[in-house]
């Protein structure tokens, strides 16, 4: 096959179909007798209070931001790593400089306390 991504596309289709089929079979076989008590939100037997959309710590967002920066960085590093054998020494050092600049960012976040879970 010329484009391997067509294979991946077919794989996605089959990969979704098999679990969907399992759910379909369960839907045909399994009993369904819903009632309000059965369908109530499970909170260890206690009546649920308030909205399930609880407020989250802003910390989660900070970690997601730090993650985003490093994720983009590693994406840049992959082509560098693939071509590594064919690069001269100074080109390898440029990649290391790239990492060092970003590590200084990690150090800054660390010193500022952004990596503490409060």
């Amino acid at each position: 096959m010329q484009n391997p991504w067509i294979y991946i596309g077919l794989f996605i289709l089959v990969g979704m179909m098999i679990p969907a089929m399992a759910l379909m079979i369960a839907r045909l076989i399994a009993p369904r007798k819903p009632n309000p008590i059965k369908q109530s939100t499970y909170e260890c037997g206690i009546e649920t209070v308030g909205d399930s959309w609880v407020q989250f710590k802003a910390q989660y967002y900070i970690f997601a931001l730090v993650f985003l920066v490093f994720d983009v960085e590693t994406v840049f590093l992959f082509p560098w790593a693939v071509a590594f054998d064919k690069l001269p020494l100074f080109a390898a050092l440029e990649g290391i400089l790239f990492i060092l600049i970003l590590i200084s960012g990690l150090v800054y976040a660390w010193r500022k306390g952004a990596l503490e879970w409060m």
């Binding site: 992959f78 082509p79 560098w80 693939v82 071509a83 690069l87």
Partner: peptide, 11 residues
């Protein structure tokens, strides 16, 4: 290998 070419071009 397009990725390899990209890697060489980047540095």
């Amino acid at each position: 290998d397009a990725v390899e070419q990209l890697g060489i071009a980047l540095v």
